[in-house]
Amino acid sequence: MVDLIKELVSEAIFLEWDVSKTDERKAMVAQTIAAFGLLDYAFNNSGIEDASASTQDCSEENLDKTISINLKKKCLCIKYQIPEIRLQGKRAIINCASVVGTICFAEILASVAYKHGIARLTKTTAL
């Protein structure tokens, strides 16, 4: 993907980091600024796959882990992205949630919960 972006835009880097670690979230923003001098846009598309389960069958552990990694950690990524993005005239933060962020499915409680949360997080961040 980086090669395609370089071909189309001219500059790109790939950063691999662990969204669950605060130091790595901060480093991702710092490495981007070191490479490009600024952060115009951010695309948050991280997460873990949860165990599919209906409301009555979803374990508390599954719900806690899924929401912590897939929703809370996106909130914390945005926390470090916003100060840099606000310095730019044009800016955007995009948070990937899939169609599950707009509709409900009976057998995937944790996914529905965090993806609806991401949709509202994105709107709140825009404000």
Score class of each variant (00 low, 15 high):
Met1Phe: 13
Met1Asn: 12
Met1Val: 11
Asp3Thr: 09
Asp3Pro: 07
Asp3Asn: 11
Leu4Lys: 09
Ile5Met: 09
Ile5Asp: 03
Lys6Trp: 04
Lys6Phe: 05
Glu7Phe: 02
Val9Trp: 05
Val9Ser: 05
Val9Glu: 07
Ala12Tyr: 03
Ala12Pro: 02
Ala12Thr: 06
Ala12His: 04
Ile13Leu: 10
Phe14Ser: 15
Ser20Arg: 13
Ser20His: 05
Lys21Cys: 08
Thr22Cys: 06
Thr22Arg: 15
Thr22Gly: 02
Asp23Leu: 11
Glu24Tyr: 14
Lys26His: 10
Ala27Gln: 08
Met28Ile: 08
Met28Cys: 15
Ala30Phe: 02
Thr32Glu: 00
Ile33Gln: 12
Ala34Gln: 14
Ala34Glu: 14
Phe36Tyr: 10
Phe36Cys: 08
Gly37Gln: 03
Gly37Asp: 03
Asp40Ile: 05
Tyr41Pro: 00
Asn44Val: 09
Asn44Ser: 09
Asn44Pro: 00
Ser46Thr: 14
Ser46Asn: 14
Gly47Gln: 07
Asp50Ile: 06
Asp50Thr: 12
Ala51Trp: 00
Ala53Ser: 11
Ala53Cys: 06
Ser54Ile: 08
Gln56Arg: 08
Asp57Asn: 11
Cys58Gly: 01
Ser59Gly: 08
Ser59His: 10
Glu60Met: 14
Glu61Met: 11
Glu61Cys: 11
Asn62Pro: 04
Asn62Trp: 05
Asn62Phe: 08
Asp64Leu: 13
Lys65Pro: 01
Lys65Gly: 02
Thr66Met: 06
Thr66Leu: 03
Asn70Glu: 09
Leu71Val: 08
Lys73Asn: 12
Lys74Gln: 14
Cys75Gln: 09
Cys75Tyr: 12
Cys75Thr: 06
Leu76Asp: 06
Leu76Gly: 02
Leu76Thr: 05
Cys77Ala: 11
Cys77Arg: 02
Ile78Glu: 02
Ile78Ala: 15
Tyr80Ile: 06
Glu84Lys: 10
Arg86Ile: 07
Arg86Phe: 09
Arg86Glu: 11
Leu87Met: 13
Gln88Glu: 10
Gly89Glu: 15
Gly89His: 13
Arg91Val: 10
Ala92Lys: 10
Ala92His: 07
Ala92Trp: 01
Ile93Phe: 01
Ile93Thr: 01
Asn95Cys: 13
Asn95Asp: 07
Cys96Gly: 06
Ala97Asp: 03
Ala97Cys: 15
Ser98Asp: 14
Val99Gly: 07
Val100Phe: 12
Gly101Met: 06
Ile103Arg: 04
Cys104Lys: 08
Cys104Tyr: 10
Phe105Ile: 12
Ala106Cys: 11
Glu107Trp: 13
Glu107His: 14
Glu107Gln: 13
Ile108Lys: 01
Ile108Asp: 04
Leu109Phe: 15
Ala110Ser: 14
Ala110Thr: 00
Ser111Phe: 13
Tyr114Lys: 01
Tyr114Ser: 01
Lys115Ile: 01
Gly117Gln: 03
Gly117Arg: 01
Gly117Val: 01
Ile118Phe: 00
Ala119Lys: 12
Arg120Asp: 04
Leu121Lys: 03
Thr122Arg: 05
Thr124Asn: 12
Thr124Gln: 11
Thr125Ala: 15
Thr125Tyr: 08
Ala126Leu: 13
Ala126Val: 02
